[in-house]
């Protein structure tokens, strides 16, 4: 079903989506979206939501299953504490993306803001994947406890770093892949830079094929540059701070 979101209050809009989804509707197209918060929030059904326009903060928060496609930029807090599902943003997105995200995929064509993937975690088969085609702000992957975070840094100006300062600071689980290397002065004390092995590349290829499929990038070209991987030095970075 199509919903014209022009001037529509988020509460009403989201209630419509929830109610119709409960009645069996599986496809929603939101036209003229303009800052409505919490789209897809807490929904457990495998519905598909296409957002034409810019959704508001906390898109897909607590989401557990749906697929959301945004045909514009997205704001802060996308995929906050998300459990499962997929969010595909055909643009850039704001700060604190994938906070505490525990599963599902977040694919962003362009750049991402501060604190992307903060405290993402994984549990058994539930491994969150965040890929951004562009560059990231400071504190990317901060406190990461699990999951896969990939920055591609495509189409950036010469000399622009792929991520801001404190990359991976406090990280104690999961993995970050960066296309084309990293300036080691920018990374947090809790991570080390390694070369990806064949297994890593296989994994990357799988997700990047999906990513390129969504946004029309050339997979071979994306894979042509070498990647580096960041891993936490310890799963217990703060284990020896205390006197017992």
């Amino acid at each position: 079903m199509r919903i014209d979101c022009k001037g529509l209050y988020y509460r009403k809009q989201n209630k419509m989506i929830r109610d119709f989804a409960n009645d069996g509707e599986t496809e929603f197209i939101l036209d003229n979206a303009n800052g409505q918060r919490y789209i897809g929030g807490g929904i457990e059904k495998k519905i598909k939501i296409t957002v034409n326009g810019v959704p508001g903060n906390d898109l897909a928060m607590f989401m557990n299953g749906p697929t959301i496609i945004v045909n514009a930029n997205a704001q802060d807090g996308v995929a906050n504490t998300m459990n499962a599902g997929e969010v595909i943003v055909h643009g850039s997105a704001g700060d604190v993306l994938g906070y505490g995200m525990r599963g599902g995929k977040l694919y962003i064509k362009g750049n991402v803001g501060y604190r992307t993937g903060i405290h993402a975690k994984e549990y058994k088969k539930q491994v969150p994947v965040i890929i951004a085609g562009g560059i990231a702000g400071d504190f990317c992957g901060e406190y990461m406890a699990g999951g896969i975070l990939v920055l591609l840094g495509l189409n950036r100006d010469e000399g622009t770093p792929i991520a801001g300062d404190y990359l991976g600071t406090g990280m104690h689980g999961g993995v970050i892949y960066l296309r084309g290397g990293v300036d080691e002065s920018r990374i947090g004390a809790e991570v080390s830079v390694l070369e990806p092995d064949a297994k890593d590349m296989k994994l990357l290829k799988k997700y990047l094929a999906e990513f390129c499929g969504h946004f029309g990038f050339d997979l071979e070209e994306v894979m042509s540059e070498p990647f580096v991987k960041l891993l936490p030095v310890s799963s217990r970075p703060y284990g020896d701070l205390y006197a017992y």
């Binding site: 919490y38 607590f62 906050n80 906070y99 903060i118 994984e122 406890a145 406090g170």
Partner: peptide, 28 residues
């Protein structure tokens, strides 16, 4: 979370830096 990993709760919620942000989480 996986067996044997430290469970770290950061001091702040990183999606809350103001009363407006708190409101955002309440309504989420």
């Amino acid at each position: 979370i996986p067996v044997g990993t430290d469970a770290l709760s950061p001091a702040p919620h990183h999606d809350i830096y103001s009363i407006e942000d708190l409101s955002q989480l309440i309504f989420a």
